[in-house]
Amino acid sequence: MKFNRLLGVAVVSFAFAGSAFAADINGAGASFPAPVYQAWAAAYKEKSGTGLNYQSIGSGGGQNQIVNRTVDFGASDAPMKDDKLEAANLLQFPTVIGSVVAIVNIDGIGDGQLTLSGPVLADIYQGKITKWNDPKIAELNKGATLPDLAIVPVYRSDSSGTSFVYTSYLAAASADWKANVGAATSVQWPAGAGAKGNEGIAGTVKNTKGAVGYVEFVYAAANKLATTNLVNKAGKVVKPETAAFVEAAAAADWKGAKNFAASMIDTAGEKAWPITSPTYILLPKNPTNAAQSAEAIKFFDWAYGADGDAIAEKLHYIPLPDAVVTQIRDAWKAEVKADGKAVWTN
């Protein structure tokens, strides 16, 4: 028995020694990119031996935790405000690009058979368009027979980055929405019902005839939901597909954007999907533990490589354009410093 206890102590101390040798990176925040971060973490652990704990607790939680420095990095869907980044001494950079799609439940209308537009969606979510056979919807869908069915708009009840991206789009597409509702992780929805999470929206839309909702494309693709086409800023009808998201990402003004907060919402490209947005990482510029911070940067450096891109694409996320990645690597070298020395150099 005594021997067993000794063995136990030996095992525990060995485990501690092991963890001190290659400490896991701790991150927390946005739920939208959580699947890709977790897939990256698994692949990276196999390659380098360094693990990543990512807690998907929501963007707000991620911001709080990194401001308090309880994690190595925070993650947020909505870019943090410039003055807040300044105050908390954080570097903000994007990782992947995702998009939001509208889903519907109307008898006889399948995936990709209905076309909507930003102003129409804004009117629907304000309760101004209440029937599917409204002339404004019929105008976008010439030839289709639309039922005399009440529209039930469904939104995310939990505050989320997805809602931020979606309401940003509605605000960009409709002056009315911008003035009356605005864009945020949660807003005062003028009409409709709220459901919790992507699965809540998908479930409610599935259960309710005449419902319309919005989910991340990743989620819609994985669950084969009936998505709609959208009319983009150039007036063209676009399908929610990778090419359209890439086009939107390419149209963003990365050079002019402060703290990489480039907007891809409602961009002018002819083939661009209008509801596209990057998701962000927040990293302390003055890390208390330089080694941990360097490990985190190494992880993202690997994620921007070919292996990371392949994983992201498999999960329907869009990798960043190469030029942006170069900009991010420069920012790491120039801005993340401990005792005046760059934490990561390559």
Binding site: I57, G60, Q63, V67, D158, S159, S160, T185, G192, A193
Partner: peptide, 18 residues
């Protein structure tokens, strides 16, 4: 649809920053 105090806190808390 409506909301209760407890449901609102559960919904909004994750995104409420310090």
């Amino acid at each position: 649809p409506g909301a209760t105090i407890a449901s609102t806190i559960a919904n909004e808390f994750p995104e409420a920053s310090i």
